[in-house]
Design a binder for these strands. Sequence first.
DNA 1: CTGGTATTAGTACCAAGTTCTAATACTAAT
DNA 2: ATTAGTATTAGAACTTGGTACTAATACCAG
Lengths: 192, 192
Amino acid sequence: MKRTKKERQQLLIETITDNPFVTDDQLAAKFSVSVQTIRLDRMELAIPELRERIKDVAAKNYENEVKSLPLDEVIGEIIDIELDKRALSIFDVREEHVFQRNGIARGHHLFAQANSLAVAVINDELALTVKSNVTFVKPVKSGDRVVTKAMVRAEDKLKNRTYVDVQSTVDNEIVFLGEFEMYRTKGVGETT
Amino acid sequence: MKRTKKERQQLLIETITDNPFVTDDQLAAKFSVSVQTIRLDRMELAIPELRERIKDVAAKNYENEVKSLPLDEVIGEIIDIELDKRALSIFDVREEHVFQRNGIARGHHLFAQANSLAVAVINDELALTVKSNVTFVKPVKSGDRVVTKAMVRAEDKLKNRTYVDVQSTVDNEIVFLGEFEMYRTKGVGETT
DNA sequence: CTGGTATTAGTACCAAGTTCTAATACTAAT
DNA sequence: ATTAGTATTAGAACTTGGTACTAATACCAG
């Protein structure tokens, strides 16, 4: 034959990598060998069958589909809160929160936890984030438990503003710092 | 226990949409009907068989992959991108993104759109947000279509930093402004 | 000519279906 | 109660794209 086994197998790898949707039949025709030879080759090279290859591609796609932010009121679980003073929440980082490439959590999940905690700590029907200044100090990985603390730092009664500092840690190491300027409808202590 | 045909078919659609990888057998067990019934349902609803569904998912993935770019990894839909220069995405605000109380979008959704666009615009395998400074200029409501533009403003090759300005508008009115300091592994134009 | 590798052939089997036919079950209405 | 019509279930034959295995043959080197 024209090609040696090695050459054929090399080409096989390339062909399948290039187009995982190709059947053994098509490959056999392409290389002018029998289907069995192709199957032997695949076995030696540990290349799975067509359906498995397709499933892999599909599954990868599915996993990679970004989970948008959850729709809950609060991202993370609030475990302690003292209105208008401080609040504490935890958030367990899972696979769906990280870049699959490097396992590092997407920034907006940490932001979401901090932001919703800043909203929660304010004792008001309506609290909106006006500005925020955040630093992602250290990468957070899948499996990490992020403990986030929000502390009300100051109040501007005239402007209806509340300033909240947020700090997130993993194993007591700071991973995220944020300052949030929040708008509120009513001042502290008002009830109407 | 006993659902009507319509109910079952509705649930069937949802189930398969949610998880295309489910077999007729599993569906039959789930709805306590025979496999044949499931197949009749699929025929009536023109839902293809498992393998075709998987192939569809895979094919879709493949198309996207050919266009390269981690377009999947973005909150909102990227409609235009010029790597290392600018990018544009749209995000339709729906009920689940807003505070029920007042219909105003939660800040972290806008942040997420901006943040993921800032990540996407950077032509690098790995881009991480280091710092960001954002302002929620104007409340965004359910039904609004947020158009977000990210522009690369500067590059600090020594520190591996890229500075991205992000601006979101609804009906040409600015609703969100952000500055993002991004870390990248490689400089612009480098390939290895 | 003999051994070892490479290739081909053939059989039985599998999953997850399709297509088709036929039998039953349920329900609603005359 | 009978009957029509829909809904459900059952079963057999066939399809794809394979796996797993056995066995025969081809090729090439020493």
